[in-house]
Computed example of a mutant assay.
Amino acid sequence: MSLPQVLERIAAAAARAGRGAGEVQLVAVTKGHGLEEIERYVLRYGDFPLGENRVQEARAKIAAWPEREWNFIGPLQRNKVRYMRPFSLIHSIDSVGLAEALARRAEREGYRPRILLEVNVAREPQKHGFTPEELDVGIKRIGEIETLDLRGLMTMAPLTDDPEDVRWVFRELAAMASHHGLKELSMGMSNDFEVAVEEGATMVRVGRALFTE
């Protein structure tokens, strides 16, 4: 699948849900791919946000294309918050403590990070994020931090051969966001992004599907 084909599928999924294709942003996940591959499979098709989940790998790529929009999508350790300023959006704030550490660093550097809170909707023990039960308190406390710009929620659905099996995950995250008045929903990856769009995703994080002929 190529990037234009992914965009076509996003548009078709949006139409099935009575939405416009412009309501969904593709975040092209470039982790694990070199500069030449990124040029060939992503950059040639337009100006899409690029998603990275490892700080060291991201820093080299940002240096190559500082003018691009970069999103941080992976697990973030507190000792790495000092590297977050180049990212226009951080998808993976998974605790109040991490948010507070980011806020302290941002205040020292004089900027206001845009963030999403990661929610472990399916309660998978190996994954990061707030549980649904923790989310109300997390949103209240993080929403009170003036240094941070809380935009919405993010989740990673369990891996499955049939995307229909995880539709409920996206539906629940959308309900949580609506309940709290949050507009951005980062959900859906290469294997399930169409179902995520049908359930209200405003951003889909697609990587593997882009880097194929």
Rank of each mutant, 00 (worst) to 15 (best):
residue 76 L to W: 08
residue 108 R to W: 06
residue 129 G to C: 10
residue 131 T to Q: 15
residue 96 V to A: 11
residue 103 A to W: 06
residue 100 E to I: 10
residue 133 E to K: 13
residue 82 R to N: 03
residue 87 F to D: 04
residue 83 Y to N: 02
residue 72 F to N: 08
residue 82 R to K: 15
residue 121 V to F: 07
residue 98 L to K: 08
residue 119 V to T: 09
residue 123 R to M: 12
residue 135 L to A: 11
residue 114 R to M: 03
residue 111 Y to H: 03
residue 95 S to M: 10
residue 126 Q to M: 05
residue 70 W to G: 04
residue 107 E to M: 06
residue 115 I to W: 00
residue 131 T to M: 15
residue 130 F to G: 04
residue 122 A to C: 07
residue 127 K to N: 13
residue 119 V to Y: 04
residue 92 S to A: 08
residue 130 F to C: 08
residue 112 R to G: 02
residue 116 L to R: 02
residue 111 Y to W: 10
residue 128 H to D: 11
residue 83 Y to G: 00
residue 131 T to S: 14
residue 119 V to Q: 08
residue 126 Q to R: 07
residue 79 N to H: 04
residue 112 R to N: 07
residue 74 G to Y: 11
residue 113 P to R: 01
residue 85 R to Y: 01
residue 109 E to I: 00
residue 122 A to F: 09
residue 108 R to N: 05
residue 78 R to T: 13
residue 79 N to E: 05
residue 103 A to R: 07
residue 77 Q to V: 10
residue 97 G to E: 14
residue 116 L to P: 02
residue 78 R to V: 10
residue 124 E to D: 05
residue 77 Q to R: 13
residue 116 L to I: 02
residue 129 G to Y: 10
residue 70 W to L: 08
residue 111 Y to P: 01
residue 131 T to R: 15
residue 100 E to Y: 12
residue 76 L to H: 10
residue 120 N to D: 08
residue 107 E to K: 04
residue 130 F to R: 05
residue 124 E to A: 10
residue 89 L to K: 09
residue 98 L to G: 09
residue 100 E to Q: 13
residue 74 G to H: 13
residue 102 L to C: 08
residue 122 A to W: 07
residue 71 N to D: 15
residue 123 R to G: 14
residue 81 V to A: 01
residue 91 H to Y: 06
residue 123 R to D: 11
residue 67 E to Q: 15
residue 127 K to W: 11
residue 126 Q to I: 03
residue 104 R to G: 01
residue 97 G to Y: 08
residue 77 Q to F: 12
residue 85 R to C: 00
residue 93 I to W: 04
residue 118 E to H: 02
residue 85 R to S: 01
residue 96 V to I: 12
residue 88 S to E: 13
residue 97 G to L: 11
residue 72 F to Q: 05
residue 97 G to S: 15
residue 104 R to E: 04
residue 67 E to A: 15
residue 81 V to T: 03
residue 74 G to R: 13
residue 86 P to N: 15
residue 95 S to F: 09
residue 119 V to K: 04
residue 127 K to H: 13
residue 80 K to G: 01
residue 116 L to D: 01
residue 106 A to T: 02
residue 112 R to I: 03
residue 112 R to F: 04
residue 98 L to Y: 06
residue 92 S to K: 04
residue 75 P to K: 14
residue 95 S to Q: 05
residue 119 V to H: 05
residue 128 H to G: 13
residue 74 G to T: 12
residue 75 P to A: 15
residue 69 E to Q: 15
residue 87 F to N: 08
residue 85 R to W: 00
residue 105 R to H: 06
residue 106 A to L: 03
residue 100 E to A: 13
residue 93 I to Y: 06
residue 133 E to L: 13
residue 133 E to W: 13
residue 106 A to M: 03
residue 74 G to C: 14
residue 129 G to D: 06
residue 102 L to E: 06
residue 73 I to H: 15
residue 125 P to Y: 07
residue 108 R to H: 05
residue 98 L to E: 03
residue 80 K to F: 00
residue 110 G to C: 03
residue 76 L to T: 06
residue 106 A to K: 02
